[in-house]
Structure formats: structure tokens, C-alpha cells
Amino acid sequence: MEITGNEIIHQYLRHNKKFPHVLCPGCGHGIVLGTLIRSVHHLGLPKDDVVIVAGIGCSGRLAVYVDFNTVHTTHGRALTFATGIKMANPKLNVICLMGDGDALSIGGNHMIHAARRNIGITALILNNNIYGMTGGQSSPATPEGAVSMTAPFGQLEKSFDTVQLACGAGANFVARGTVFHVNNLEKLMIKAIERPGFNMLEIITPCHTQFGRKNKYKTSVEMYRWLKANALDRERYEELEESKRGDKFPVGVFVERDEPGLEERYAELKARFSAGRNG
């Protein structure tokens, strides 16, 4: 009988790692890992051809649990290592797992340049609006007015719109999903993995421990209810009058282009020289 659901996931987890994983009860990151595994399984990619490159933070801790080639790098730099891996061996499917602080603050420069050079990497940005692992300090994705350990009187700065940033920087594919809408997330993730060029998928994944408790969400379940109520399909969100948008945010695909990735353009350059050598 064909196996389904979590039985698939169990086959991809490292059997010599201790479970459950280190993340807090109700943390959406586990759901992201599950969705990632199902997406890879759906695409039929061999484990040997998948490289997970993770940054530092709660999201970075996911890599160790899954039986792919996994590289847990330095804070904010996952995309730089991934760039080297992809250029060195373009056959590999390189997937970056980064947090919002990781990808947008300390790694912001790498993020915009990876998008600009459109290198064939899947960038999954797990946005929980906070620095979780270090104890709940503000990140560039902490909403204006929200309370954090470093913004005890409310965040004064505006937050990044990750999607707009990636669109502006030139990514091939830009999308947003949530860990509540898992089926939709899986569809987006499959696209983000199989498409050429730089594909950015922002995943809204709640942190109840560090963000929710300081911002009126007593349990992780409340945060999932919030996701359920506020994530709107992009088209529906755009139809909504601005005054009625409130906390609502758009999910879905924002950009879908078919520009060749940097590694493909480099291969073309090399082909020109080898044709010259052989001819």
C-alpha cells in the first residue's frame, strides 16, 4: 500500500537523530520541514541530489533532522554558501532555510544579490517576526508597534515586505504562504524547488513563545487562528479596500518568470569556449 502523510516524512528523517526536535510546542517550523519533505518526495528528487543550506536561528536547526546533504552555516550567510555549492555543481537542488532576521537583517545584502543574479537556489524564508532563538528581540520583520525584548515600548521601525523586496531585486519566482494553509504552501514550495533561477518563498510561521506571548496571543493555537483569519489570496486581498485590510496579508504567487539562472548562463559562456577549443 502506498504510504502517505507523516509516514513519508518518517522515511526522510535521520534515524540517528533524537526526536522530537528542539523546537517549541506548536512552532510552525516543524510544519515547514514536513512540507519541504513532502515537496521533495512529490518531485521524486533523490536524497543525494538535495542540499539543505541553513542559516542560524530556529530555522537553522531544522537541517540536522533531515536525511539530505545538510549544511548549517553562519548567521545570515546561508545564501553565500549555497551560491558556491550551486555554481560548483549545478546538478544539485540547493534549498536555503533562513529566518527573517537571518535572511533580511544580517543576510539582507546576500538576499538581494542572490535575487539579482538569479542564481538557481530555492530560498525559503521562515518569517516568525522575531529573533526566536536568542530570546525574542526585534527583527526587520517585527511589525511596527509590536512588543519585543528590544522594543519593550513597541517597535518604532517599519518592517520589511519580504515579497516586495525579492520582486524588486529580480527573483524569478516570489511567493508567500503560511503554515496554516499547508496544501497551498506545498504547491508553492514544489514550484519554488522545481523552477529555474532564484525562487523565494516567504513562509509565515508563528512564534508563540517569543512573539505571541508578548503580543496578546496566549497560545500557539491562537496564532494559528490569526493566520487562518488574516491570510488572504492575493487576488482577494487586492480587491479589498485599503481601509478594510487591517491585519490581513496577501498569500500566493507574486512573480513568475522564466529567466535562466546564473549557473545556466555561466554554462552557456563555457560552452562558447569549449566549442572554440573543439572546432
Binding site: 502523510g5 516524512i9 528523517l13 510546542p25 506548536g26 517550523h29 510544519i31 499547508v182
Partner: peptide, 17 residues
């Protein structure tokens, strides 16, 4: 419906026929 299986962050639920 598969909701619990898809949303369990710890892969602790399995639903089979």
C-alpha cells in the same frame, strides 16, 4: 481530512486507512 497529520509540527500523528 489529513489536517492533523499535515499540521503536526512534530510528525507525531499518522492517519492511515
Amino acid at each position: 481530512c489529513g489536517f492533523c497529520e499535515l499540521h503536526c509540527p512534530d510528525f507525531a500523528i499518522v492517519v492511515t486507512e
